[in-house]
Design a binder for these strands. Structure first.
Lengths: 241, 241
DNA sequence: TCTTGACCCTCCCCTTGGAGGAGTCTGTAC
DNA sequence: GTACAGACTCCTCCAAGGGGAGGGTCAAGA
């Protein structure tokens, strides 16, 4: 009736999550309406990707329900974010493959180092250099200038912030977003690109119609191009007053 | 050097994914540069969440590479979509819990039936009725009118289409989107709501600033509110000419 | 009453990608 | 010589069941 396999019922019986209300003398598991209802609850929570142990707790102890669900939401949001990063990496690697570029294994390796590993590596390097040369490199923040264009870094950080804001439901007109954009424009202007708020808005509007930019932004985060455009427009409107 | 645990190396050795180039007489696994490079490739693919077996195939058989990656992309996109649905369900169930509504188990059950199961159920019901009354219900498409308000149904279908378009990277100004909006407005106007394209654009712009609507739309799909607004604006602009 | 086919039962092994531990051995540094 | 780190093998464990062997049970039709 509910579409679960008999194997699943065996399993739930074994771990005590769903017991049959009766077992026939031939050993058949028999379930009643109450059990069916419980099963439906189990399936609902399972659909939320809760582990069976958590489901068992949820079904026994009512009060904890909300906190368990909230934690699960956080986990899922993290997973989603991670998934989005992975998809982006995958698409990049596929498109560079299409262009016939053979992937440089070092670049590959660099690309996926987690932030943590990266920091650890820096830490190590730093300690080593401090040891050898007696000065602290981390504070001077010059390290990645070697490997990464400063402007690209700023742009990536800006986009990451914007995408993060979109995901967490911050409105495009919020002060935080406006501040991000202002800082980004200040940075741009400091580096030889004269960009007014209106220019920036126009530029982001252009992204919506341009395949390359649209794909890049949407690859990073679904809806990012549209969110960015709305935010830039809002910022330009606010600045004009 | 690459940060993998020795346990992982044992495992890769055992399943034949990465063999040491030499084993010392004491039994120590020794790896050379070639192996390190292979490991880096493995780690890269692992980061894309490919199963180790697929990684092994990828590393042995060059030509299949692209198709495997493409399939993986599809899988990941599916997972992402599914994750988004789950998160939405979870958020809905949490917010209804906060309002103190105790969840009706039947509603719960309805909520998570997969599209496939749903269709199968309809199919069955249909066959049965056809058998009993000699006519085909599926074609008349009247089934869900019982359970669902027609307008809510249309709105939900419309939003689903829009969200789908956003996810698949269709531009907001594309003819397909414009057609969707046109049909939606025609439907609305047929049902007693006089909505001009400009009204609709204003309404969607209003959603961006309204907590309730923003959360609802963004809950369905990140970026949906912004995409919808851009599309409505574009539609209104096109209609005005 | 017998057979047939569809289910069900228990028991055991297998899946992923390693993690953890016990007991032992090796390599290096003081 | 001896301590200590780290590698070795072998074993078990995780989640949520899946697959299959070998055998029992149920209901219907002949």
């Amino acid at each position: 009736m509910s579409g679960v396999t008999v194997k699943t019922l065996h399993h739930y019986h074994k771990i005590g999550l769903l017991l049959p209300c009766e077992v026939s003398e031939a050993g058949y598991r028999l379930y009643g309406m109450k059990e069916l209802e419980r099963l439906q609850h189990i399936l609902f929570y399972r659909e939320l990707e809760l582990p069976l142990k958590e489901i068992a707790r949820l079904l026994e102890e009512e009060p904890e329900r909300h906190s368990i669900l909230a934690r699960q939401e956080e986990l899922l949001l993290l997973r989603k974010q991670r998934l989005e990063t992975i998809i982006q990496t995958l698409q990049q690697s596929m498109s560079s493959m299409e262009k016939g570029e053979i992937m440089n294994s070092k670049d590959m390796f660099k690309g996926f180092e987690s932030a943590q590993e990266w920091e650890e590596a820096l830490e190590e390097q730093n300690l080593h250099l401090k040891d050898a040369y007696g000065y602290d490199m981390l504070d001077s923040a010059e390290i990645d200038a070697q490997s990464m264009n400063e402007q690209a870094l700023e742009a990536a950080a800006f986009m990451n912030h914007i995408a993060e804001a979109l995901r967490t439901g911050i409105k495009h007109s919020e002060a935080e977003i406006q501040r991000l954009i202002r800082e980004h424009l200040v940075f741009m202007n400091k580096h030889g690109h004269t960009v007014t708020p209106a220019d920036f808005a126009a530029q982001t509007r252009f992204f919506l119609g341009d395949d390359f930019h649209l794909r890049m932004l949407e690859g990073q985060q679904t809806g990012l191009a549209y969110y960015l455009s709305a935010a830039a427009e809002s910022y330009a409107a606010a600045e004009q007053q």
